[in-house]
Nucleic acid binder design. Structure first.
Lengths: 241, 241
DNA sequence: AGATTTATGTGTGATAGCGAACAGACGCAA
DNA sequence: TTGCGTCTGTTCGCTATCACACATAAATCT
């Protein structure tokens, strides 16, 4: 099951708002371009802005020791960076790295806090999103504990695909390795296996998915689980399993 | 560094309240005894009660597949079960299992939601606790991905010690194995190593810590990290590192 | 006292992933 | 064209952990 997304021209968290609320919010945003590999913040940093990706992807990395990092969350146009402001804490829990260039809405943290007071629907939506994030962070981190690299790679590629909304995108094996918390060689092996099965093709960072169903079959159940959580909590009207 | 706890006769999350607020809340609680291995809820269950442990310990388990479970959070008298109600979602994100028998305060979810409206300090305190939980869940899950069993076991024992507030407690290797997401044999090995180093003694579930400093030295940095997060967010006045 | 359950210890082989080092291959730029 | 940086592929020995099976020992029950 692919992630069912409500049609939204910009960011799915802004869907469900009334036209008035939406227009009002848009005056508070500025649109910027995030650049690949930019570090938006490190864990513990004060939060200056919140980000609502339109085409970009932001990866949340949990850092343990040197060379022990793990991607625990991925933010595309289904989510936002900075939702922990809802809890009245203005420091970032994780490092945030740009994984895919693209247009992004940005709003100062103070403005965001103020806007939350103005729209109950908006606040409600974002509280639910924070709940989803919590669930998915743990699911992803646990997944990396138990599942083998090939499953996790498939899972990761599907999550990227959903967010760039395209069958082909650019991502190096080195970058995938960092997200999965494994050596690059491990990704090389897993990617080769997926290529042999004609599921993907991969050349110098240019990745193309040929067989969506095959890739979902190769991935662990965590992909499904995460999507179901998102749909169940944020869009229960679409949830009919 | 051991977890610095504000002195509180019952539960640390109730510290910081005014006497009036505190007394008011206490009329809404009932005190119950949680029984070892009781499953309070499974992931996805509706939340009927929130729990504030006094002497008990509740472990939060994330379930992947059969036989693939991981403890992601531990709740003693420094925390509570059910804080995700703050996000307006009334389903439990994780399975909650009683790891240590003992007195516990309990309040119906509806009452809890109502009480949050009555005390800004209380709500603020719990929002911060939820932020801490989020950080720690991810930290624990990531820890289990990267660190070796012996480090993780040391870490786990310290966390239990802090919550029972005693150098000796009862816990079987089987139970530790489930929390760590490893085979019992793995725990046997790690525990044996700790015994040889005279750090603990262990016999048929009766565990005693002899060397606190030694145990902290054996544990991974995650123990420290988690404690620092707790202190920094919830009790910044005690945070002077 | 004997039987049963619970808790811990041991042993053997398999394997996923690690660390390190190196080799080719493509692309851009001087 | 030459060179250099980036990206991918390959190999080798090593280790933590796994799965499975069995052995011992203490506690509890009859």
């Amino acid at each position: 099951m692919q992630l069912k997304q409500r049609i939204s021209p910009v960011n799915n968290l802004l869907a469900g708002l009334t036209e008035v609320e939406y227009q009002r919010l848009m005056t508070k945003f500025e649109t910027i371009d995030l650049k690949l590999n930019d570090v938006i913040c490190n864990a513990g940093d004060p939060i200056h802005y919140v980000y609502f990706p339109i085409k970009s992807i932001i990866a949340l990395m949990n850092h343990l020791d040197a060379d022990k990092n793990l991607e625990v969350g991925m933010i595309g146009n289904e989510g936002m960076l900075g939702s922990t402001l809802l809890l009245g804490v203005n420091t970032a829990p994780f490092r945030a790295v740009v994984q895919n260039t693209g247009a992004t809405l940005r709003m100062p943290a103070a403005t965001f806090n103020h806007e939350l007071q103005q729209s109950l629907v908006f606040e409600q939506q974002l509280k639910r999103y924070l709940y989803i994030s919590l669930s998915q962070f743990v699911q992803n981190a646990t997944c990396n504990r138990f599942h083998v690299i090939e499953e996790r790679l498939a899972c990761l590629l599907l999550r990227i695909r959903d967010r760039v909304q395209s069958q082909s995108f650019h991502v190096t094996q080195e970058s995938l390795a960092q997200m999965l918390g494994v050596r690059r060689v491990g990704v090389t092996m897993a990617a080769k296996a997926l290529q042999h099965k004609k599921i993907i093709s991969y050349s110098r960072g240019n990745l193309k998915i040929h067989d969506n169903a095959g890739l979902e079959a190769m991935s662990c159940s965590c992909y499904q689980t995460n999507n179901e959580t998102y749909t169940r909590i944020l869009m229960p009207e679409l949830f009919n399993t």
